[in-house]
Amino acid sequence: MDISLLFSMTDRVSGLAGPSAMHPESWRLGARVETWARGRGLVLGDPDTSPLGRARCERLAARVFPTAELGAVELFARWLTWALALDDALDHPPLAVSGSGVHALYDDLTRAMRRGHARPGARPLEAALVELWAETSADMSREWRRRFMLQLEAHRDGCAEESVNRRIRHVPAEAEFGPLRRRACGPFLYHLAEPVLGVELPPRLLRTPRWKTLADSVADAVAWSNDLASHDLEADRGDVHDLPAVLAAAHGLDAPRAAALVADRIADRLEDAWTAARRLPDMLDRLELTVAQRAAAAQVVKVLLDTPRAHLDWLAESGRYQPGTGPEPHRLDALASLR
């Protein structure tokens, strides 16, 4: 499978029609994020020899936030780098087949966040997370911090469930896959739009069905687009936690037909997102939000609606899902801090 199928959707999905904008200082961003990732031990050796090194997270950050302050965009790019480093650890043994291992790793991570410092000798994932959390949460409310922690727990639970599925060789049913994939695909990342933009959304807005439809639809479209890009690599290692594999198993489809069906599902979810967004103004009136709250909501909605196309353009320029040019360096040992 290749992502050309996704670009063929741009004629029929209005939200994907035009290329995403790019932050004017993206070139500076790349150097800064690479220096940070190397300094924290997340990227080792030649970047071109590892999926994380080839990912170019700064390009995605620069496309999602093309007009934000550079330091804030860099913070988001660092979070993306950390999230992909965590993803690499969770997708490979021993964590890939150990739900208890996933919970143990997350216990260490969240305890470090609450303490405000990593343990002596902590490995890169823990130390980098403490640094990111301190910088991100400093100006955010207790309610936002609680919400973010809940999303980390949702991610933990989704990844642990995937690990169990791999161990018992269970292919998720179509009905259960959507919510599972949403939990396992970094749901906490979407809540970073607020600190990047310097705003905070009122809790009563986030609890409304319309906002949930918007947020979930965007998350699904991004996750399923990623599934198309990563399917071949995941199939090579026997992983079935992507939508093409799930639909192929559920409907007896070959790879091309499964991919085409995934594209249809993405188009449907993007239409759901835009429909929900168009209906938001009436809901904002009913909630009697302040002018500042309405402005914050408008900024975050724009980021959400722009993200699927930004992610698509990033997939085209990232090397994360392509074979490396040489031997891969030693993978980040996320479990070393548990020994």
Score class of each variant (00 low, 15 high):
6 L>V: 09
6 L>S: 13
13 V>G: 00
15 G>E: 06
16 L>M: 02
18 G>T: 15
18 G>S: 12
19 P>W: 14
21 A>I: 02
26 S>W: 14
29 L>V: 00
30 G>I: 09
31 A>K: 08
31 A>W: 08
36 W>C: 02
44 L>G: 10
44 L>S: 05
45 G>R: 01
51 P>V: 12
51 P>F: 15
53 G>R: 06
55 A>P: 00
56 R>W: 08
57 C>Y: 04
60 L>H: 10
60 L>T: 12
61 A>L: 06
73 V>D: 07
77 A>F: 03
77 A>P: 04
81 T>I: 14
83 A>F: 02
84 L>W: 15
86 L>S: 00
86 L>K: 00
87 D>W: 09
87 D>R: 13
87 D>E: 10
88 D>P: 01
90 L>I: 03
92 H>K: 14
93 P>S: 04
94 P>N: 15
95 L>D: 06
98 S>L: 00
99 G>N: 05
102 V>E: 03
110 T>H: 12
115 R>C: 12
118 A>R: 07
118 A>T: 04
119 R>A: 11
120 P>Y: 01
121 G>Q: 08
131 E>G: 06
141 S>R: 03
147 R>T: 13
151 Q>H: 10
151 Q>R: 15
151 Q>G: 03
155 H>Y: 14
160 A>I: 04
161 E>K: 14
162 E>L: 11
163 S>N: 04
166 R>H: 05
167 R>D: 08
168 I>R: 14
169 R>W: 08
170 H>S: 14
172 P>H: 11
173 A>W: 09
175 A>K: 11
178 G>D: 05
178 G>C: 04
183 R>M: 07
183 R>N: 08
185 C>P: 07
186 G>F: 12
186 G>S: 14
187 P>H: 05
188 F>G: 02
188 F>T: 01
190 Y>P: 03
191 H>W: 06
191 H>I: 10
193 A>R: 10
195 P>S: 04
195 P>Y: 01
197 L>R: 00
198 G>D: 05
201 L>P: 06
203 P>A: 12
205 L>T: 05
207 R>W: 11
208 T>N: 10
214 L>K: 00
215 A>K: 11
215 A>D: 13
217 S>K: 08
219 A>D: 04
222 V>A: 12
225 S>L: 00
225 S>W: 00
227 D>G: 11
228 L>H: 03
229 A>W: 11
230 S>C: 03
233 L>Y: 05
237 R>I: 03
238 G>V: 09
238 G>T: 09
239 D>A: 15
239 D>I: 09
240 V>S: 11
240 V>A: 15
242 D>E: 09
245 A>Y: 04
246 V>S: 08
248 A>F: 00
253 L>M: 07
258 A>Y: 01
262 V>S: 00
263 A>E: 13
269 R>N: 06
272 D>E: 15
274 W>C: 15
276 A>V: 08
277 A>M: 02
277 A>L: 02
280 L>F: 13
286 R>D: 14
286 R>K: 07
288 E>D: 09
290 T>E: 07
291 V>T: 15
292 A>W: 12
293 Q>L: 09
296 A>K: 06
298 A>E: 08
310 A>Q: 10
311 H>D: 02
312 L>M: 14
315 L>E: 07
315 L>D: 08
316 A>Q: 08
318 S>Q: 07
318 S>F: 03
319 G>K: 10
324 G>E: 01
325 T>E: 12
327 P>N: 06
330 H>L: 13
333 D>S: 14
337 S>N: 10
339 R>W: 12
